[in-house]
């Protein structure tokens, strides 16, 4: 798989169809890197040209902003917007709902106007256009899968159906948790909680959510966010169910189904 940076595209005097904003988790976190590569494999398989920013990409500033550090956030925003505008970026896909939200809703205020979509939305589009065909009767047919709505894709941006459409196309048996869609329970990572210890309480939020996921009896917990992924995996581990229950991103489900 040949993954080109925007600098390389620019050197060839060409522009890819879409920029893949990898994000910090997707770049550095071992588990999230697998999702990053899964999405690249899918884009490669459907023949959609894409570029990454590589070393030129930096944190969108989301955790800094939610923690209250507006200076740092805006510094990151202006820096990233300069990079993106320099390459004349029009369309961005990202596998992180936090990056998605910041790029889509918060960058326009500082001069960064792009069409931003989450990878589950892109995957749904590719399926709808017939470019991405999920091989029927695949390994997930009839399998019990539960889906965890991330807060920044769901409540913050109202995207509930695209990820579910993928599960439907996989012929999986989607079992919803009691708290789902607009009532979904947070994994506990948002608002820069990922980077600090929990405040004192009775339970960790990720364990509470993992419990709800385990109660569905599903063998797979589908997620759409690298932070939810970490939180839910840790939660499942805390319940000692890591051998029976897998936490997988929707892109990974497609890669496994189509043996990409």
């Amino acid at each position: 798989m040949n993954i080109k940076t925007m600098a390389e595209w620019a050197a060839e005097g060409r522009q890819p169809e879409i920029l893949f904003w990898v994000g910090c988790a997707g770049s550095y976190d071992d588990r999230a890197q697998k999702v990053t590569r899964a999405l690249c494999k899918i884009l490669d398989a459907v023949g959609m040209s894409f570029g990454i920013l590589g070393m030129e990409e930096t944190c969108t500033g989301d955790p800094a902003r939610r923690a209250g550090n507006e200076f740092l956030f805006q510094m990151m925003a202006f820096q990233n917007i300069a990079t993106l505008n320099n390459y004349g970026i029009k369309k961005i896909v990202t596998a992180c709902p936090h990056c998605f939200n910041t790029l889509k809703n918060e960058y326009p205020e500082y001069g960064g106007n792009y069409e931003v979509i989450h990878h589950t939305q892109l995957l749904q589009q590719l399926m709808a256009e017939g470019k991405l065909k999920l091989e029927g009767g695949g390994s997930f047919k009839g399998k019990k899968i539960t889906y965890h709505d991330s807060c920044y894709l769901g409540r913050a941006n109202g995207v509930y159906e695209a990820p579910r459409a993928i599960l439907e196309a996989l012929d999986a048996d989607l079992v919803e948790m009691k708290r789902c869609k607009s009532n979904g329970l947070c994994c506990g990572a948002g608002g820069a909680q990922m980077f600090k210890e929990d405040e004192p309480g009775k339970q960790r939020i990720n364990e509470a959510r993992a419990e709800e996921a385990l109660n569905t009896g599903a063998g797979i917990v589908a997620s759409n966010c690298p932070f939810c992924m970490t939180m839910l995996s840790d939660g499942v581990k805390a319940k000692d169910k890591q051998d029976e229950v897998m936490v997988l991103d929707l892109a990974e489900l497609i890669v496994r189904n189509n043996s990409l």
Binding site: Y28, Q33, R37, E57, A64, L72, M76
Partner: peptide
Amino acid sequence: IENGGSPWQMPVSRDHW
């Protein structure tokens, strides 16, 4: 974030993946 462009201090480059 301020010094390395990511919330984690990482010893590898951003495109290492």
